[in-house]
Amino acid sequence: MWVAIIVALVAIGSLIFHLYTPWWSTEIASNWGGMDTTIDITFWITGVAYILILLFCAYCIYRWHSGSGNSSSESNHKAEYNPENKKLEVWLTAITALGVIGLLAPGLIVWDDYVTVPEDAVQVEVMGKQWEWGYRYPGADGKLGKSDATLINDDNPFGLHLDDPNGQDDIIVEDGYGMHLQLGQPVHLLLRSVDVLHNFYVPQFRAKMDMVPGMVTYYWLTPTRTGTFDVICVELCGTSHYSMRGGVEVVEKEAYQTWLSEQETFAEMRAALNKKSSETSRMAMNSQFKDKVTQR
C-alpha cells in the first residue's frame, strides 16, 4: 500500500516540481526559439509517458500485492497466467513509434536550419586558447584572411598569413569580453582553437559547438535582443576551464558600425608593431653608441 502511494507521489511530485520550478531556461536572445519549442514538445510527449507508466505501476502494486509488505512470503491470490499478447504488444510498439516520430521530426527540421548558414550571414571568427577568448572580424572586404596555427607568435596571435590581402583589413579583438554583434544580423561564427578543445557558449543564444585545434568548426545565429551576455567555455579544457570567461555585447546597427570603425586593422596593428620594434632597435643602437662613447 505504502509502496504504491510513494510510486504515485514520485509521479505527481515530479509533475508539480516541473510546473513550479524556479530553475528554467534563460530568456532567449537569438533566433533559436525552435530549440526551446522542441524541448517543450519533448517534455509533453515524454512527460505523459512517464506519468502514465508510474501511475500504472502504482496501480498494479496497490491492486495486486500480497501480504503486508513486511511479511512478504504469504500469498492471498494467484497471479494470472498469459505469457504473451501479440495484439497488445503490436499496439504498444506502434504508439511508441508514433511518439518517436513526433519527437524526431520537429527536431530534425530545426537541425537542418542549424547546419545551413544563410547567405547574408557575416563571418566572425572566435578563437579559443587556454584560457581566454579572442575574436576576428573580416573588416571592410567582408573576407577573413587565411590563417595557420604554425604562424602564431606574439606579434601574430591568430596566425594570419602576412601576405594574404584579405587579411590586411581584418580586425583582431584580443579582449575576451570585447565581442560585439549586431542586432538582427545573422552571423556565421567560425570557431578555432590553438591548443585543446573548447566550446563557445552563450546560454541566451542556445547554440553551441566545440572548437577543435587543426580544424574550423561553425554555427550561426541571429541576435534578437540587445544586451551584454556571459560567454563560458563548456568543453573541459584543463585546470582553469571554469574561469575561461568572456562577454558579448549585442548592439543596434549604428552602434555596431561605430564600434567597428574604432577598431585597429591587422595592417595597422603590424605597422604599429614594426614602428615600435624599429624604435626599440634605434634606441638600442643609441645606447650602444653611448656605451662606446663612455668607454672612450
Binding site: 509502496v3 498494479c60 502494486i61 495486486w64 500480497s66 500469498s75 497471479a79 510498439t93 511508441t96
Partner: peptide, 25 residues
Amino acid sequence: LIIAVPTAIKVYNWTLTLWRGDIHL
C-alpha cells in the same frame, strides 16, 4: 531515437509483468 522503441517495449513488459501478478514487496 529508434533505440527507444525496443527499450520502451522492455519497460512496458516489466510493468505488464506486475499486472495481475501476486506481488510480494
